[in-house]
């Protein structure tokens, strides 16, 4: 419950509704580079803390699902490879593509690969500042340099799924292209984290 409440508070603090994402040019008017960088990350936060992304970045336990980020049903565990349990891994149900249900509205999401973010990349319940520090930390981000992080945000397919989540799911705000541009601008301005 604690996680949910903090997430909700975080969402309320976001600058915009979920549909739109402002590009780097919007922040050019911020004279102070550090402030601009932090503002850029805050804008990126609209994506990072969107349920399409957050659901597979749990801190403890398994993934969540839905816009209300309820526990995943059926229940699944992280497993040793962030890929579920023996005989009940992600690919038992998820596949390379979103698949519309034949007998009901909605769809089951899919992508190749489909897996949880590593436990070190758990975001649920964290403040945006904490997420930012974590994202920059090669100890926790899978050894990524900032350049690699940009590449990941701008081009990784599973990240990109957030904007193509299948029937019955609201996409993350903006586009992966815009998210990549924001990441680029944030890095270029010093990759400063918001408070």
């Amino acid at each position: 419950m604690r996680v949910m409440i903090q997430t909700a508070a975080l969402m309320l603090a976001l600058p915009l509704g979920a549909e739109e994402l402002r590009g780097p040019e919007f922040f050019e008017s911020i004279a102070d580079q550090n402030e601009r960088s932090a503002a850029l990350f805050t804008e990126m936060g609209a994506v990072l803390t969107h349920p399409r992304c957050l659901n597979c970045h749990p801190v403890t336990g398994g993934p969540t699902q839905g816009d209300d980020m309820r526990p995943h049903s059926p229940p699944v565990i992280r497993g040793e490879a962030d890929f579920g349990a023996a005989a009940m891994n992600c690919n038992t149900c998820h596949s390379a593509d979103n698949v519309e249900f034949a007998s009901a509205p909605g769809s089951i999401p899919g992508h190749e690969p489909w897996m949880l973010a590593p436990a070190s990349m758990g975001w649920q319940g964290l403040t945006l500042g904490e997420i930012c520090e974590q994202i920059k930390d090669p100890e926790r981000n899978g050894g990524k340099t900032l350049e690699a992080l940009w590449e990941h945000n701008a081009h990784d397919g599973l990240v990109g799924w957030g904007w193509h989540p299948g029937e019955g799911r609201e996409p993350a705000p903006g586009s992966q292209e815009l998210f990549g541009q924001l990441t680029r601008a944030w890095i270029d301005t010093g990759a400063i984290c918001p408070e």
Partner: peptide, 27 residues
Amino acid sequence: CGVAQCGACTVMLNGMPRRSCVTPLSM
């Protein structure tokens, strides 16, 4: 259930368990 909630439709796909209700034939 038709929505990968109950597991009654489980088959082996290339040796791994797979819910056939959410597996299009093309796959």
